[in-house]
Amino acid sequence: MATRDSLSPFETAPRDRLRYLRQALSRRLPNAGEGIVGYLFLLPALTLFGVFLAFPILYTFYLSFFRFQGVSDETLLWIDTGLFTYELTSIAELQFVGLQNYVTLLSDGLFHQALFNTTFILVVQVPLMVVLALLFAVALDASFVRFKGIFRTVLALPVSANLVAYATVFLLMMQDAGLVNYLLRSVGLPAIPWLTSSFWSRMTIVGAVTWRWTGYNMIILLAGLQNVPQQLYEAAEIDGANRWEKFRYVTVPQLRPVLLFVFVTSTIGTFKLFSEPVIINGGGAPLDSTITIVQYIYQTAFVNFRLGYASALTYVLIAVVSVLSIVQLRIGGANSA
């Protein structure tokens, strides 16, 4: 029988279900040897996956119910086989506190500030970037535009910029005596305190992130545009649709799954924001107005060494991002189907 590609065999009719089960059984029994080959190919990846991914996921959750009191190497298990000895030590010294970490974060002002800052950046930055990316994609998709390749290359160039390195140039350009204020002054506008006012420092982050990711999203949208059937535009033209109507009633609905995908991934990206605020605004300056959630987790865990509490924060963030990712997978599924 051919290998089944479907992830879940149980979407089939009951009769097929029975046949599938029978085949699965008969496939498993005679070829016991083949099963081992599969495992051998899987073994290296599975080992690392278990140790460095599955374990940390569970251990973060476990930690979130404890207060961290220090690293420890207390022996938990000692096996001496004569040939070799095996020692399992505990990782950390912990004190069980139940749900206290989760209760604390409900009334943690700085966490709320971080949540607010992240949401603020999200609400301004994501729509701005998606609209820009869409406009660039549509413009570069237009048949009359020449030098498409060059424009696309230039707009996508920031994709390859190191996340931390590019942030430094925004730090430089946005100084009071920096390039942007010089340009503003030379056209007669007042200088803006890009890094010292809490509103404008968030806007600086918005600008930097938009610069870095617009081209990336443009590439995804451009690929989506290429899948819009040309006949739809022709039909709309016959119906007398103008440019705006074609965009509104053909392009946008056809791109909907891709647009949603871009929205959701950008939202997830904002929740993970770390490099830009750290480099551009130091530790969330001015007055914690740019501190993001991940930055707060970093400070809590590795500056204040409250690892248990930081784990609880991480899990709240993971919950948010997971829900968003599930939405994203749904959209992706609708997209490919």
Partner: peptide, 22 residues
């Protein structure tokens, strides 16, 4: 493995740090 696709794996720094120390 598919399920971990939804997790931001860069965020698992706390247990990873303890693990690396160990």
């Amino acid at each position: 493995i598919l399920a971990t696709l939804i997790l931001p794996i860069q965020l698992l720094v706390i247990p990873l740090f303890l693990l690396m120390a160990q």
